[in-house]
């Protein structure tokens, strides 16, 4: 039988939609592939090391991404300092709110100009031809309808902020869980290299990450950098 990759075998089983009709050999092949992946054939330690390495890479990537985000913010708001994701969010909220507010201010001004224009045309002396006046009035009404549509489009600000809040919350949770796994695996992997004091510190940090972060009790950026440098 032609050797298939794990992905191909899973895809084939899913496509069949009836696991009980799949030949037993294919199921055994799949089990073998999973065992091989987790190092049962090549040794369990190898798989743990590989997983730890992958998690380490993921943690480093998240850490680097956060720093890149900080760089972007620094170039735009040089005199402000945002130590964490919540502050990044606040900055986005502030900036979009200011921009939206400015757009709506200008819309209000346009509405005011249009009303003023309509008033002047109605009160012209000698009066304007009624057909011309009706045409201009219609054009002003259309312009004001467009202004209403601009107001409606400003809905984006509130929706954007709410979605960003959810994304930030999800990212914070992923980061916390990845870092916790790095700590747990790192303690196992580096058991003989770490001194007792460092092990205790890392265990304490793993405990801190094992639950929702409370204000003032979570890990700051410097703590995360220190953990990664000790273990990776």
């Amino acid at each position: 039988m032609t050797k298939m990759s794990l992905t191909e075998r899973i895809a084939m089983l899913e496509a069949s939609q009836k696991g009980d009709m799949v030949p037993a050999q294919q199921v055994w092949d799949l089990v073998d592939s999973v065992k091989e992946m987790f190092g049962q054939k090549k040794g369990g330690l190898h798989a743990t090391s590989q997983l730890f390495h992958e998690l380490g890479e993921l943690a480093k990537y998240i850490n680097a991404a956060k720093k890149e985000l900080k760089d972007v913010q620094n170039s735009n708001l040089a005199d402000q300092h945002f130590p964490n994701a919540t502050n990044h969010l606040d900055a986005i909220v502030q900036m979009t709110e200011q921009a939206t507010s400015k757009i709506m201010d200008e819309c209000d001004r346009l509405n005011m100009f249009h009303n003023d224009m309509r008033e002047r045309l109605i009160n012209m002396d000698p009066p304007l031809d009624p057909n011309v006046l009706a045409g201009v009035d219609d054009a002003i009404t259309q312009a004001q309808t467009s202004i209403t549509h601009v107001f409606e489009a400003c809905n984006f600000q509130d929706i954007t902020v709410q979605r960003i809040q959810k994304v930030v919350k999800a990212l914070q949770e992923i980061e916390r869980q990845v870092l916790r796994m790095v700590l747990v695996f790192g303690l196992q992997e580096n058991d003989d290299k770490l001194d007792a004091k460092t092990k205790e510190e890392l265990k304490h940090e793993a405990e801190l990450l094992n639950g929702p972060q409370l204000a003032g009790q979570g890990l700051e950026q410097d703590d995360i950098d220190a953990i990664l440098s000790k273990l990776l």
């Binding site: 709110e97 507010s101 709506m104 209000d108 107001f151 409606e152 400003c154 809905n155 509130d158 902020v161």
Partner: peptide, 17 residues
């Protein structure tokens, strides 16, 4: 009622329209 000033302004404006 809305904690976002932008949204209050949008709703008030649309009601005015």
């Amino acid at each position: 009622v809305d904690d976002a000033q932008t949204m209050r302004r949008i709703v008030v404006n649309l009601l005015r329209q």
